[in-house]
Computed example of a mutant assay.
Amino acid sequence: MTEFHDLAELALNRDNQSWGNLGYWKSATEYSDACRALALLLGEQAGLDSQSEVFDAGFGCGDQLLLWLTDFRVAEVRGVNLSRSQTAFARTKLAAAGFKAAAIVQGDINNSETWHVALGGNRPSHVLALDCAYHFPSRQAFIAQAHRQLAPAGRIALTDFMLSDRHRSGSFTHRLLVWMLKRSHIAETNIVHRARYLDQLRTAGFEEVRITDISQHVMPGFASFVRTSPASAKADWPARLKHAVTGRFLQWAYRRSVLRYFVISATRSGR
């Protein structure tokens, strides 16, 4: 069966790189560099260090797992990813680099049993979701599950889409957005205004919430790259179409102030 989340982004990367996010294009000009920059930004906002025990919700092909381990030198990495092909790729990548991949599992992030299998009874200090939470069946359920599983004073950190404050539901633009979300395997309920997103975090029990708009360094950069880079031409036709449509959609959503892209972090309250 064909997976929506597959290995299509491999064609955009340099050799031996397998990133799969939208990238942070503030100074980067190549896809692999931009993707790495977005991961670094997330790790910095999460406050990762050598004491961190990381649970990565949606780790793609494994490049970010290696970054947590090598650049931030975290104590442990565990994670769940929906894609079978990506999970197999990540396992091979980690093993080749000399890291244990047993705690990297395939499954649905909204299934509590999947968390149990990956965590093995441990409580991580950090839950990360790099450019993937909007694809979860329910981001709100994910946030609640993260709060239950995190250690006391643990932190959640994500990069994610929200509706622009200027965007209004019921308009033609909104109906077009809903149509695009459905075809992008994104639940409409995951795309909310900033105030609603903040409420979801606080309702789940998070505090010290920090939300930073990085849209200008993400959305137009990815759109420009897939439109002009020869790298995108290396992909097969379905992948090229997927990248082109994504790029055009992001350019439209940015220019029309429909969506904005943020890096978010928060601290678990309570015991």
Rank of each mutant, 00 (worst) to 15 (best):
A118Q: 01
W179I: 01
V218Y: 05
R210H: 10
K182Y: 08
G79T: 11
L66T: 14
Q149V: 11
V77F: 14
E53C: 02
L128D: 00
L201Y: 01
G98K: 10
A95M: 03
G23C: 04
D160K: 02
V209G: 05
R256V: 04
H5A: 02
V127D: 00
W179Q: 09
V117T: 10
E3H: 06
S265L: 13
V263R: 00
L163V: 11
G170D: 01
R227Y: 07
S171R: 07
C35Q: 08
T228R: 15
K100D: 08
E3R: 00
L94N: 08
L163W: 01
Y31P: 02
S257M: 12
A95I: 09
V263P: 08
T203K: 03
S18I: 14
L38N: 13
G62R: 05
L42D: 04
W252T: 11
P137F: 09
G270N: 12
I143P: 07
A266Q: 08
R148F: 03
R256Y: 14
V117C: 09
L163N: 00
L176F: 13
D71T: 13
G20D: 12
D131W: 09
Y254P: 10
Y134E: 03
R78V: 13
A88Q: 12
Q45C: 10
D33I: 15
I211W: 05
L201E: 09
Y261Q: 04
H243R: 11
L177I: 08
W237G: 00
R84F: 03
A144C: 15
A239L: 14
Y134F: 15
E113W: 13
A151R: 07
A11D: 07
F4D: 00
F206D: 10
S232K: 15
A118G: 07
P230F: 15
G107C: 08
D108N: 09
F136T: 05
T228N: 15
E44K: 10
K26F: 08
